[in-house]
């Protein structure tokens, strides 16, 4: 079995020697970046050693600032995707020098979740359904389901449980509109001449750059857009002054009640975990967990008395409901019984 090194006792030299720490400093692998961001914020007492370790690594490499590295990654991604979608008839090498491709992004990854209009999903359909009216395609999922859809332009959409997406069967020449209720992960085929816009009610997100996630929490009356890479613009329909541009690692939260948008930082790993079958709780209340699990496993909780908890933090990957509840109840302290589609919670 793999063993985590005893990082707590590490000195600067040992951090600088550790491949996963190097990978964090050089922003090479997402898993290492996430791990070390977490670890460092959990261990403020190691700050001096960490700072000196980074200094050592910087003496060895001449590293480029993160922002510049990101634009280089965007540049290669755009060029490769452009070639992928429009392969040259013969080998033409001149296209890659055209400045257009330097900035044209090819892939867009986004997650949107709203769950504002929960009443839409009251039907307990067992299969995803498809309605075609007036060339508008509607696809939806019930509880406990996920669905991957490929649009005609090559865009891929992974729908989370209890979600619905509608879009014209054929996009117009000028714009690609998609409306979403619930949560979805998008891999958008980028076409600069035909912007991709995701509508959640009157809150719209327009793709401008390359890769990003959009994420909103269903429990609160919010829509959240989280950018991983590239650039997006969010705005409230009909309000010119509401334009908000996001840089990587920034998130926009739209409060539906106040119709206000706020910008803040976000955690990439946490927001895209569901796509990979991971349930991620961070300081979650019992009610938040209940909502998540009900939707994920297609069950209904029957709660005698809500267990008082300060906030549960934990991750479950591809585990059964029973295992997940075992983990939570062990640390929170409650009893549960699963009977068919019902989960009984007793203190």
């Amino acid at each position: 079995m793999e063993k985590t090194p005893d990082y707590i006792n590490f000195h600067a030299e040992e951090f600088a020697y550790d491949p996963s720490f190097q990978s964090y400093v050089l922003a090479s692998k997402e898993s290492d970046i996430a791990f070390w961001k977490n670890w460092i914020s959990d261990h403020p007492e190691k700050q001096t050693e960490i700072t000196e370790a980074i200094q050592i690594i910087d003496a060895i490499y001449a590293r480029l600032p993160q922002g510049k590295m990101d634009s280089e990654i965007n540049r290669i991604t755009a060029a490769v995707h452009a070639e992928f979608q429009n392969p040259p008839q013969k080998h033409i090498h001149s296209w890659k020098n055209k400045p257009f491709y330097k900035y044209a992004a090819a892939a867009v990854f986004l997650i949107i979740s709203t769950f504002v209009v929960l009443s839409l999903f009251n039907n307990q359909s067992t299969d995803s359904k498809q309605l075609v009216t007036n060339h508008v395609v509607e696809k939806s999922t019930g509880k406990g389901q996920k669905l991957t859809i490929t649009l005609k332009d090559g865009t891929q959409i992974k729908l989370n449980a209890e979600s619905k997406i509608t879009y014209p069967e054929n996009f117009s020449d000028s714009v690609r509109w998609v409306t979403l209720d619930g949560e979805a992960y998008f891999e958008v085929a980028k076409n600069p001449d035909q912007p991709f816009i995701v509508k959640c009610g009157d809150f719209h997100t327009q793709v401008l750059g390359t890769s990003f996630n959009i994420n909103a929490y269903p429990e609160i009356n919010n829509i959240e857009v989280s950018l991983v890479e590239g650039k997006v613009k969010t705005y409230i329909q009909g309000q010119k002054s509401s334009d908000l541009y996001l840089e990587p690692e920034e998130m926009a939260s739209y409060n539906i009640t106040n119709r206000s948008i706020a910008k803040s930082a976000f955690d990439t790993q946490k927001n895209i975990a569901w796509k990979d079958g991971i349930i991620h709780f961070e300081k979650a209340s019992f009610d938040q967990m209940k909502l998540t699990l009900e939707r994920w496993y297609d069950v209904k909780f029957v709660v005698a008395k809500t267990p008082g908890i300060k906030g549960f933090t934990g991750e479950f990957k591809n585990q059964s409901l029973e295992d997940v509840l075992d983990g939570i109840s062990f640390s929170v302290g409650f009893k549960f019984e699963i009977s068919g589609k019902k989960v009984y919670i007793n203190n």
Binding site: A27, S28, I60, R63, L64, M69, E72, I76, H81
Partner: peptide, 18 residues
């Protein structure tokens, strides 16, 4: 698979750049 290029690029970029 075009996404493999981006991942490989990110993995080695800083070392190659240095």
């Amino acid at each position: 698979d075009p996404s493999a290029i981006s991942i490989l690029y990110k993995r080695h970029f800083q070392v190659l750049y240095s």
